[in-house]
Structure formats: structure tokens, C-alpha cells
Simulated scan of single mutants.
Amino acid sequence: MAGDGVRLAVLIDADNTSPKFAEALLAEIAKYGTAHARRAYGDWTGNQLNGWKEQLLKQSIQPIQQFAYTVGKNATDSAMVIDAMDLLYSDRFDGFCIVSSDSDFTRLAARIRESGLIVYGFGARKTPEPFVAACDKFIYIENLAYEDPDVPAKPGAAPRARRTAAQLKGDTRLVNLLRTAVEAASDDDGWAALGGVGSIMTKQRPDFDSRTYGFAKLSDLFEATTLFEVRRRKNSDGQQAGVFVKDRRTPEPNS
């Protein structure tokens, strides 16, 4: 479930998430639904979260105060889990966005999914795999600063280097993922709708993102590997009606 009408609860672990990603984070979340609840957790009485304070007002994020009662214990995690369960039982949301790089939220993500709600995770590349795997989709916040090389870069933002065809073909894990997804979604002629392919890939690897490889669009990534054919179909008024991919190893019918 994603798109218009989807009600999302956004819970941010401000203790281990950089405020520089705040604007891009909310923009990314808007692709999946509407953030009806926006909460950031941490000890706001100290100076360590000063960078977040400006973003709270700018992005309309509600700060949730959590004192660090004991040194070495993360009280913020407990507060987020308690609030998440309260929001879950309110039956007012269709999904959750958990913003943290902490594996302590693995069980929370799994519990929310068990209730039939979708979970989007956001964290740094250091995020442990169990938390990544517990989410329906996981987005690395480093990718949110991505700039499309075909679009003029924003001041101070450097474009992410695109992987070459050789580098992409040499990534066995990536190639196997692409080919497995295309095969699973393909018709009798070997062609697969890109939307279906992307859905299968996300189910297999929640953290898959074409931006990781330097491509804003999945279709561009497929083309760049040179291992697939990409066909863009247009409707009668010239608008793109769909993108289809086919493994070049797939034989033509009756060949």
C-alpha cells in the first residue's frame, strides 16, 4: 500500500539521525503517503540535538522529550516503542516510518508488520541487517542526498557517481537479483513490466535502491548493465504507458 490516502506515522530517533536529512526525509516519505504524525525523540534539554531544533519548526515535527535517566541506557528507544504501540492500537494509521540505524527496533518493525501495516525503515548504511530485513522497504538516508547527474546539482551537493557497466556486471548479487525478479515477473515472451519487477526486488531485498548505484530510475539501472533490453511503451497521446525489461539471454519465441 502506497500513495494518496495512505496515513503514515513517522517516528524519528533523533539521537542517531542527522538533522541535515530532515527535509529530504519528509520529501521521500511523501512518495509513500501522508505523514499524519511526525515525532522526533531525544533529550531536548541538552545541546546535542541543537541541529534538530530548527528542523522541528521547519518540518512541523513534534519533539518528544525523553530524559536520559541512566548513563549507557537508551531511553529514547523505549519511548519510541511505547508510542508506536499506542499509535498502532489507535487504528488510525496504514503504516509506520521508523527513522533509526539502531537494531533495537527490529522487533518493533516485525510486530507492526504482523498487524498488517506496512513499515518503511530509514537509516544509515551502518544499520544492522536484522532491522533492514524486518521492514517492508528500507531506505538508506545517504541516498536521500542523491543528485541525478542529468539534473543540475543543488549548491553544495555533489552528484553520486554512476557505476559503470563493468562494475554493475561484476556485482554478482545485483545481477542475480535483477535476473531473478525479471524471470519471476515475465510473460511468455520474456518481457516483464518494470513495476512488477521492482515490487519483487523490494520483497527480496528491502534495502534495494537504484540510487545506491548512481541511477535515479530503475529503468536506467537496467539499461546501464547492458544485460537487459528496455522497452518504453507510449499510449496514443504520446505519454509513457509503461516500461518493460527483458533479459538478453531470453531466446525469442520460436527461435
Rank of each mutant, 00 (worst) to 15 (best):
Ala134Arg: 06
Arg163Cys: 15
Ile12Ser: 00
Phe138Trp: 00
Ala27Gln: 10
Val10Cys: 04
Ala181Gly: 11
Asp189Pro: 02
Trp44His: 02
Glu147Asp: 15
Ala161Met: 12
Trp44Gly: 00
Ala133Asn: 10
Arg179Pro: 05
Gln62Gly: 07
Asp187Phe: 07
Ala109Asn: 05
Phe21Ile: 15
Lys126Gln: 11
Gly238Phe: 14
Ser199Lys: 13
Asp187Met: 06
Gly195Asn: 09
Phe122Gly: 02
Met1Val: 06
Leu178Thr: 01
Ala241Pro: 12
Arg160Val: 08
Gly123Trp: 00
Asp15Tyr: 09
Leu25Ser: 04
Gly156Ala: 10
Pro128Ala: 03
Asp247Ala: 13
Asn47Ile: 13
Glu223Tyr: 10
Ala9Arg: 00
Asn16Ala: 04
Ala30Ser: 05
Leu218Ser: 04
Leu8Val: 04
Ala166Asp: 15
His36Tyr: 13
Ala109Val: 02
Phe138Thr: 05
Ser101Arg: 07
Gly238Gln: 11
Ile112Trp: 09
Leu25Gly: 03
Ala158Asn: 11
Asn143Glu: 09
Gln66Ser: 02
Leu218Thr: 11
Arg248Tyr: 02
Asp148Cys: 03
Ala84Thr: 03
Ala24Glu: 11
Arg107Pro: 11
Tyr69Gln: 10
Cys97Thr: 01
Leu88Pro: 04
Met80His: 10
Asn254Trp: 13
Ser100Tyr: 09
Glu114Ile: 07
Leu168Ile: 08
Gln204Met: 15
Gln48Thr: 14
Val10Glu: 00
Ala2Pro: 06
Gln167Glu: 15
Gly198Ile: 07
Phe67Met: 05
Phe215Ser: 04
